[in-house]
Design a protein around this nucleic acid. Structure first.
Lengths: 405, 405
DNA sequence: CGACTTTTGATTGACAACCGACAGAAGTGG
DNA sequence: CCACTTCTGTCGGTTGTCAATCAAAAGTCG
């Protein structure tokens, strides 16, 4: 349900259903049904305060558009049993794209962020926007067919890319690992195939949205932290994903760790979190200790094998991440921190190191209800977030009214 | 002007005047006039797309309520000269309260956050909520009379208190320096005198709102940092003040400084920013170096006198603050950081230290358009912010419609 | 099986919102 | 002084919304 702030009768700040304050419309009614729970017309009149006749008309509109569908009948309470209606996630579909440095994951989802068809494949981002996006579009067409969906069916396209993005225009802004993509108009190019709204965001922001939508839908303040080649985060504050002034918010990788570590970083500074706790940094530390770690996957195997030295190294890296996150907790006071990225798959020791450092260095008021957890959506976080980004904008009151009208 | 996100004709994410999507109403029209610029009826028809007759009716409503007032005539363009209308900040007044540990500043302002009457006085917060709020109410009544305003005239009351607040209820939550205030219902108590909406927030959040409203109204992402006995901040992201999950967001005081300093802090940890760069910490450092610094004011005098050793100490403290802010910049990517609090009045050396550390440790993308500045509103930031908090809620579309209807 | 209850859909009339048209007001320019 | 332009207020007409009523549908209960 969508809530807005109002001052209630006691002149206190409170929350009220948006339907009371916003204009009555099919779109507003739809927001009440969006949680998927079946409701009767009577439920809706009680929730909105509008007349049954008005609700009936609105429900009919929504049924016609197939955005809601009949959901059976409730049991009778002595008279005719009421018929119920619920959000119909099958009404439209969403194309969700998650681009990484070397791989792309592409999915077709329904409106409830459920995957209908999905494919992951190698795709080198350095091949440039035209080659990459053309390849993405080709796979997308296959997936749409596989899912039995028509391109006309799409509500929109969501794309996550591994670099900062100017969210309003969908253009990457000076991305360090995406040569040729700077200021490229991704929506314009993709619109050659898909004549629908196209939204682009940073990949970690997309992952934050995915985890939020699927696993923590009611949480207003959370962080998603990705620890892999780099270390980044997506921030959701007050229920909204935060981009910052240049779309560069959430970059944890080059925050200095508090213990005065002087490891040099690729950015030119010393002691950056990325230089001491990222996947490559952990692998380097293990090599220093005589282990044979030719590639990141080998590091994970070593840790999973239970080698004590490797576990200590990973746990220490976790503490480093946690020491930086402790500052983030004091600053943002989130309810949940989700840890994702390949390094987080190394096991519980990494997470334990993070928790240890956060709970020892953050303020009690901020940590008393704080949960630090591993990702539930794992490798799918990105595509799920791209999908949630599209439904978040595409199922707004205004847009639903447009879809119907 | 109020903007909302929509997908435009090109299916791109863009901004459009709220009047297009929100229902037409006097409140919505008022938002277009709220910037204070005089506009003609024709201007408004062009901005909203509504018929002149509709606009005329709405303008009349707003004139009747005195929320807008005639603002003279524009010069003729060949025919009858159009009359213009502008926001009338005198229509109502606001009671703004800024409570500190030992002082209170109370002001009556107009709707444009301009002070009409103001008083600062000693008031020990440890005397407890009843004694303090009763004293505040008494002063407020005097100030209302001094400003020639009636209590009925109030749009609302805004209060800043030196501790965490549950914003929705206006109750302090485990405030460390406010004995007797924990969970006290401040709005309920003040409502005995003022039967209007009463909003309560943390004092640093209020200062952030004040500086934002008066000096940086268009900036969507900024931080206000107060360096005094403690070190705290107010965060404005995406144009909204962020409270975090427990209203504890913005606490910089107990973030660990990156250089591994081991100074013990009152919180039980080591190397907290507050332990190395707050007013008392700087005073302690100066005492260690043989200076006679019996109280905080003496520290300021010493620095203002230009003593090189004192300047070095202050500059070093600035660097410590900056090293923590560098992380905040990477995390939040603000456009502006405003430095306030008594320590910031010590001179440019403190600010210089902050800038030095931030610009050396933050990412170029985040710092290229970043400004780090001293407060313009100074000691008034708190009351101005309390006032802005009230107008921000009280002049919303819904509330203006209520004021008129 | 019949009386009663509850839900649903259709109809109707009241009402408010909004628009366009019109006439009057207040200027400019020849 | 008059033609023309631009702005303003008013009025009637249209539209769409909403609430009340009613009859039919579909169940429960005795």
């Amino acid at each position: 349900m969508v809530y807005i702030s109002v001052i209630d009768e006691q002149n206190r700040l409170a929350s009220a259903p948006a339907g009371n304050a916003l204009p009555n419309s099919a779109g507003a009614l739809f927001q009440l049904l969006r949680d998927g729970t079946p409701r009767t017309r009577s439920d809706l009149t009680a929730m909105t305060g509008f007349a049954r006749s008005t609700i009936s008309a609105r429900v009919e509109e929504l049924l016609d558009s197939s955005l809601i569908r009949p959901a059976g009948e409730n049991s009778s309470t002595g008279g005719r049993p009421p018929s119920t209606f619920a959000f119909n996630p099958e009404a439209r579909s969403v194309l969700a794209v998650d681009l990484g440095g070397t791989h792309a994951r592409i999915a077709v989802t329904d409106l409830a962020t459920r995957v209908l068809a999905e494919k992951e494949q190698e795709l080198d981002i350095t091949r440039g926007p035209v080659a990459v996006l053309d390849a993405v579009a080709a796979v997308a067409m296959e997936l749409l067919q596989e899912a039995g969906r028509n391109p006309k069916d799409l509500l929109g396209v969501g794309v996550g890319v591994p670099g900062p993005v100017e969210f309003a225009t969908g253009r990457p802004m000076s991305p360090p690992i995406m040569p040729g993509w700077d200021h490229f108009d991704i929506p314009a190019h993709l619109r050659r195939w898909f004549a629908v709204p196209i939204l682009v965001d940073n990949d970690v922001n997309a992952m934050a949205r995915g985890e939020h939508a699927v696993a923590y839908p009611g949480v207003a303040n959370m962080m998603f932290v990705k620890v892999a080649t780099g270390i980044g985060s997506g921030i959701i504050s007050d229920g909204r994903l935060q981009h910052g002034a240049q779309g560069a918010a959430g970059d944890l990788g080059h925050i200095a760790t508090p213990d005065g570590d002087a490891t040099p970083c690729t950015c030119g500074n010393f002691g950056c979190l990325e230089a001491v706790a990222s996947g490559p940094a952990i692998a380097a530390q293990l090599r220093e200790r005589g282990f044979d770690v030719p590639h990141p996957a080998a590091m994970l195997e070593l840790v999973r094998s239970g080698d004590p030295e490797a576990l200590r190294t990973v746990r220490h890296a976790g503490r480093q991440v946690g020491s930086v996150l402790a500052g983030c907790v004091n600053l943002l006071n989130p309810s949940v921190i989700v840890i994702g990225g390949v390094v987080s798959t190394a096991g519980e020791h990494f997470l334990a190191g993070i928790r240890e450092a956060v709970y020892s260095r953050s303020l009690p008021l901020a940590t008393q209800h704080l949960r630090i957890v591993g990702t539930q959506t794992r490798a799918r976080a990105g595509v799920l977030g791209s999908s949630a980004m599209v439904t978040g904008h595409g199922l707004s009151i205004e847009n639903v009214n447009r879809l119907i009208g």
